[in-house]
Amino acid sequence: MRIDIEDLHLGYAGRTVVAGARLVAAQGEITGLVGPNGSGKSTLLRAVYRHLRPAAGRVLLAGTDLRELSPARSARHIAALPQERGDDFELTVGEVVAMGRTPYKRAFAGEDATDRDTVARALADVGMAGHAGRRFAALSGGERQRVLLARAFAQSPDVLVLDEPTNHLDVRHQVELLALLRAQRRTTLVSLHDINAAASVCDRLHVLHAGTVVASGPPREVLTPALLAEVFGVRAAVVEHPLTGDPLIAVDHRAPADGPSAGGRGQG
């Protein structure tokens, strides 16, 4: 399923955070949101998984305004892994992942064979098979992240909405998670701090700056030295990754884009 965001305005307590955002997450593609802290990435994603009501504009799921769908119906199509999530669950890993089956269950309905198979498959997908009986609260940060991703998979969604899913993961598990997202081939809308990860895994990027989408397109077209200087404030060269051929952003960590050794904003 495709997500269309049309002229979206979002904010808190009278303060506008996202202004007039327009973007598309095409069916079966991984669409990335990148931008500096405070640019509006998480706020925009909250509107997609219905934790924040737009002040104006709309979010469309396969052409239907999300506000026209019941929460249960939208939850059968869209699963989210937000940044803000409780870490004090007094539940087992299996119980946490089974929460992803809630949109398909009637009140007080018990777990059936389909639910059990789906939960087991989701745990296996994230490398947590055999851990269903562990207490969620006793897991490491990276393990919790993978379990929560398994919960999203257990919803069997058409669309995944992921806010910084590689947080707390070591390098190997970051690579495994991003490879898993590509293998899933679900419509995915994901925010990432790591620009190189975004350039590698995403089919299309939308760059946010001060609540506005300032660039959209394939990573190779969007991630230019001029944009990196203007939006992120860094001096960088964009070269070809020697192993994958993806764009590779080499940042000068000695000085910001407007520093004395930068040679001018947008250079490099």
Rank of each mutant, 00 (worst) to 15 (best):
Y104R: 05
V34H: 07
L139A: 08
V48C: 05
A47R: 07
R85Q: 14
M128R: 10
A55E: 15
G127K: 00
K105R: 13
T114I: 09
G141K: 12
V93C: 03
R53I: 03
M99G: 14
R53Q: 06
A26P: 09
A47K: 03
D115Q: 06
E68S: 04
A47M: 06
A137G: 01
A80P: 14
L123E: 12
E90L: 14
L61P: 04
A19W: 14
I78L: 11
G130D: 04
D87W: 02
Y12F: 15
L23W: 15
R58W: 12
S70A: 14
G130S: 05
S140G: 14
R116T: 09
L52W: 04
G40H: 07
P82K: 05
L33P: 07
K105Y: 00
V34C: 11
R116F: 09
G28S: 09
H9N: 01
G86H: 10
T118G: 09
R50F: 06
T31A: 02
R144G: 13
G127L: 03
A19I: 01
A79E: 07
L69H: 07
L8H: 09
G142V: 00
L60P: 01
S70P: 02
S42M: 09
G57Y: 10
G35R: 11
T92V: 03
A79L: 08
T31K: 02
V17S: 00
V34F: 07
R121C: 03
R76P: 13
E95G: 10
